[in-house]
């Protein structure tokens, strides 16, 4: 089993959706989450606050330097994510497609680095 990040790319500048649409999306995501949990694919998920709440911390040169705002000034920003387990990329893409339908956004599916397997196990 591999772990995959399903990253939600959101345009935070887009006009707000109606309350009904939002409630429908919440319900769809809840249902998707419940499916993930019951199928054993669920690892973690969460939605993020708007990108302007982000702070960059750079301590690579010794002392930490803070910068207000997200890392990249792109139109679309990370809005939330799932971490799922899946047997292979096809299965992960399948979950990504369902996540995309549920939340109404584009999803980036990206594999996690694999821990070296323990041969004694």
């Amino acid at each position: 089993m591999n772990q995959y990040l399903l990253a939600v790319h959101t345009d935070f500048d887009a006009p707000a959706t109606s309350e009904d649409e939002m409630m429908a999306a919440f319900a769809a995501v809840d249902e998707f989450n419940a499916d993930l949990a019951s199928s054993g694919a669920w690892v973690f998920a969460g939605g993020l606050q708007a990108p302007d709440t982000a702070t960059i911390v750079d301590a690579t040169a010794g002392s930490a330097v803070m910068t207000d705002g997200p890392y990249a000034e792109t139109k679309e920003q990370l809005g939330g994510f799932w971490v799922v387990t899946a047997p292979d990329l096809d299965a992960a893409l399948d979950l990504g497609a369902r996540a995309s339908v549920a939340c109404g956004e584009r999803i980036e599916v990206r594999p996690f680095q694999v821990e070296p397997e323990d041969d004694d196990a």
Binding site: N2, Y4, A86, P87, D88, L89, D90, A92, R110, P111, Q113, V114
Partner: peptide, 14 residues
């Protein structure tokens, strides 16, 4: 290898 693209004949559905 890293993304886990399976080495198999795809399912009937796709």
């Amino acid at each position: 290898r890293d993304a886990g693209i399976a080495y198999r004949i795809p399912d009937e559905s796709v």
